[in-house]
Nucleic acid binder design. Structure first.
Lengths: 133, 133
DNA sequence: CTGGATCCATAGCGATACTG
DNA sequence: CAGTATCGCTATGGATCCAG
């Protein structure tokens, strides 16, 4: 942690894996799934296919507008499929694709991190806010 | 993948780990680090302590306002430390805390996912956009 | 060099009303 | 039931100017 920065320029560190290129991609994905609802919807769909209002009730507070937009985004990125049953009243099922399910894994990793460290974060936050003026 | 939804109500699935509670935490963390710059700054600091303008040049395009805000947020959450050297001109070093470095791991996991699947995502996106009107 | 203060444009999101 | 359309609020972020 001491002798580590002489003139690494743009070459980045060989051992670790956060090359600028990779960082950009992480950033893109995070901005994509880092909105208010995406991961919650994905989590809900992680339990199997769901209908529109099932998801809605599962999340409790999402507006139908945001649920529509979120599902459209996920569908666009190939993370969920949308299946319309031409019945009356209409029925639409949403389900994670293979790609969508593969996302559950890294997201759960981040979930573990969150659970382990959120107390520390909250503590740091309170401390910071107490000192700040 | 077939016999999986009878009446699981609010109890969620035992095998997997995306209980609503956990999902909420993931969502919070993602919204926190899912902004435009946070992970990029964390990535930059992953290479060791950096000065304000070093980070800025490392990212290339961030405004100093956003860099300040991003660093403040990270400092508030206990993810980076801020060290002021009372010289003239002033010099300020930012460095990941242990907590901050621990975040690199799950973030890199997501980075791997991003690299592996972004081609598929882009492809799905183009296909969707082509069909959509 | 490090950042605070302002102003402004845009994106995200909620509320509500309307439709097949 | 599953959306679409519209509105308005707030958050996010960039540009610019000022200061220790």
């Amino acid at each position: 942690m001491t002798a580590q920065r002489k003139q690494e320029g743009t070459k980045s560190i060989p051992g670790t894996l956060h090359v600028p290129e990779e960082c950009r991609q992480v950033s893109e994905v995070l901005q994509r799934i880092g909105d208010k609802w995406t991961v919650l919807v994905v989590g809900e769909l992680g339990g199997g296919p769901r209908r529109f209002n099932e998801i809605r009730r599962g999340l409790g507070s999402i507006s139908q507008r945001m649920l529509t937009l979120t599902l459209r985004g996920l569908e666009r990125d190939g993370l969920v499929t949308r299946t319309v049953f031409p019945t009356v009243p209409p029925r639409v099922d949403y389900e994670l694709t293979k790609l969508g399910r593969s996302l559950l894994d890294p997201v759960n990793q981040l979930g573990s991190w969150a659970r382990q460290n959120q107390p520390a974060i909250r503590q740091a936050r309170e401390k910071f806010d107490a000192v700040a003026r």
